[in-house]
């Protein structure tokens, strides 16, 4: 596969109350971001198991973007801290599996933070494009 034709697949974890509306807002404002992104919503970003992230890479995603609740989480005032800790764990697991850690990114996305979201996904897309498909990395070893 030539890197030229390569379209990185990005899994976005969003949250029902905060970041998913922020991602909607990007659509409403017709702000474009890579269409190879896929969005999966959960109640709160602190529930994302590191295992889910690894599962995404195993299933063929080239990158994962955590659109976290940030300081606006309706459940937990320290949501960012918890999410960051879990993401760090996932990142370590990626390292163990030989997956480039820059394929994983977390950012607090508020319910109208469409720009921040679009910029974040685009830059992750660009980075991943440079890295090539995840299957070229340690994934084979991982499964």
């Amino acid at each position: 596969m030539s890197t030229h034709a390569f379209e990185p697949k990005i899994l976005v974890f969003s949250t029902n109350i905060i970041s998913d509306p922020g991602i909607d807002q990007a659509g409403m404002s017709h702000i474009n971001y890579p269409s190879s992104s896929r969005i999966l919503r959960v109640p709160c970003s602190s529930m994302i198991r590191p295992e889910f992230i690894i599962h995404a890479f195993e299933s063929g995603f080239d990158a994962v973007f955590i659109a976290a609740d940030g300081g606006d989480c309706p459940y937990l005032s320290d949501c960012s801290v918890r999410t960051a800790r879990n993401v760090q764990r996932a990142s370590e697991m990626m390292k163990e599996n030989g997956i480039d850690q820059s394929r994983l990114r977390m950012a607090g996305i508020c319910s109208v933070c469409s720009d921040a979201f679009a910029k974040g996904v685009k830059s992750l897309y660009d980075i991943t494009k440079g890295l090539g498909p995840v299957r070229s990395e340690g994934h084979d070893r991982a499964s």
Binding site: V42, P43, C44, S46, M47, I48, R49, P50, E51, C73, Y75, L76, C79, R82, N86
Partner: peptide, 13 residues
């Protein structure tokens, strides 16, 4: 309250 924070940290799922 349904945040799911516990889900992320359970070693056995």
């Amino acid at each position: 309250k349904g945040c799911g924070a516990c889900v992320a940290v359970c070693p056995t799922g």
